[in-house]
Design a protein around this nucleic acid. Structure first.
Lengths: 232, 232
DNA sequence: TTGGTGTATAATGTATACAAAAAGCAACAG
DNA sequence: CTGTTGCTTTTTGTATACATTATACACCAA
């Protein structure tokens, strides 16, 4: 944890929630690395609060699976294995398919227009080089779809699962050779929702995940290899 | 909260986890009713611990969606609406289908035997009248399937979603006229996994959920009506 | 009677104090 | 030189104290 954890005082929330969001973002962006210990007094000093809000935030991170508790030793950032990521993606594949299927049934004309706009925004972003702009456009597009399902629980779960892979988002976004493919995949999803073709939409959503999975798994293997080479 | 919350000291866990399990069970069994406030000092006295473990347990229940937090007012047991239950079931439908599909691919011969046994146990239980025995047999059967997927994340999510409906489990189990149908549905699921027929298994799992949904929604409407009649 | 205001009370939000256990380290014995 | 024992330090687990805010109830005025 070299960089400073910066607390976001903008929001007017109980400290535990501020701490929760802060730690969560730090973990998801890789600022707090897998295996790193979360020591309460240390974090408390760093964030300028007492141990109580820190502990309550850790309890929530624990249930989310972002940290694991070792009894009488404290919390550490959950290690991501290839298996755990495959598990997450397997579930996401099903839920993303469900999302587009439901969207076919329930999306409003208004949201359909927003989806088209988001698609075009993504194409524009993909032509540029700024990965974070592309990532934002990607999130915006997918958000419209899950919200169009009208199922809040589904939206919450999909968002949560997506965030588990936040650290690897840039992996497939940075492969510029794949940009055309991403654009095409999004367009296919849009087209199939527009034509209310559930089966085609589900196929497209699954393919989209499968391709991301390939990029991410490749990246993880690379990281593991270099890690193994460093400490044999 | 008329009955006594009884703490389970069997397990050797941090108090927060003991409290978490205790409160969780109380909510899921309906001992703590929707809308009921969870007051920290009260619970602390009741369970003979301080407020700290109570608060940490509530943070986890909050993330699970079993309680909702009202700022500066505290926690209350989440109210279940027809919409929220439909949302949960919609997701479960997809995840249960995924579970049986994965089970088709991955279940071992050993687990297949256990599944057959669980099926037979359920049939035996269904002949009796003890709802809690039937419920246990039902859970055991489904547990074997989700564990056979080898996907821990999926297992965790399915369990969590199932528990959201724990309070209504007895609704469809108590309808004795439906017992034969439940047995037949389980058998169909077993058969399709045995023949590794993913499509058929998915259909069977979805039908199983759909039928439960009907019973539960009917029950909720009944409860709502009687509630509305009482306080007009 | 009704509406509003003020105070008292009770609950949460946060901080801190204390206890117990684990980890690291040093010293000593073999 | 190595292994073990015991002490010290650090960290978690739990309890409690203090601050702040919301709620309820009573009282007063219109």
């Amino acid at each position: 944890m070299d960089e400073q954890l910066q607390i976001d005082m903008d929001e007017f929330l109980p400290l535990r929630d501020v701490v929760f969001n802060t730690l969560r973002r730090a973990i998801l962006t890789g600022q707090l690395k897998p295996g790193e210990r979360l020591m309460e007094v240390h974090l408390a000093n760093k964030l300028g609060v007492s141990r109580t809000p820190i502990r309550e935030a850790i309890r929530k991170l624990e249930l989310e699976g972002l940290v694991i508790m070792i009894p009488r030793r404290g919390a550490e950032v959950a290690r991501i294995t290839e298996k755990s990521l495959k598990d997450v993606l397997e579930v996401r594949r099903a839920l993303d398919a469900l999302s587009v299927e439901l969207a076919c049934d329930r999306i409003t004309e208004e949201d359909m227009k927003r989806l088209l706009q988001a698609c075009q925004d993504f194409e524009k972003a993909a032509k540029g080089k700024d990965a974070s702009v592309i990532a934002k456009a990607d999130v915006a597009l997918h958000d419209i779809i899950v919200e169009a399902t009208g199922n809040q629980r589904l939206a919450q779960l999909v968002n949560n699962l997506s965030e588990q892979m936040y650290r690897y988002r840039f992996v497939y976004i940075k492969e510029e050779s794949k940009h055309d493919m991403l654009v095409a995949e999004h367009r296919e999803i849009y087209e199939s929702i527009a034509s209310r073709d559930k089966e085609r939409a589900a196929r497209a959503a699954k393919l989209h995940i499968d391709n991301q999975e390939k990029s991410i798994i490749r990246q993880i293997r690379l990281e593991n290899e270099s890690r193994l080479n460093k400490q044999p």
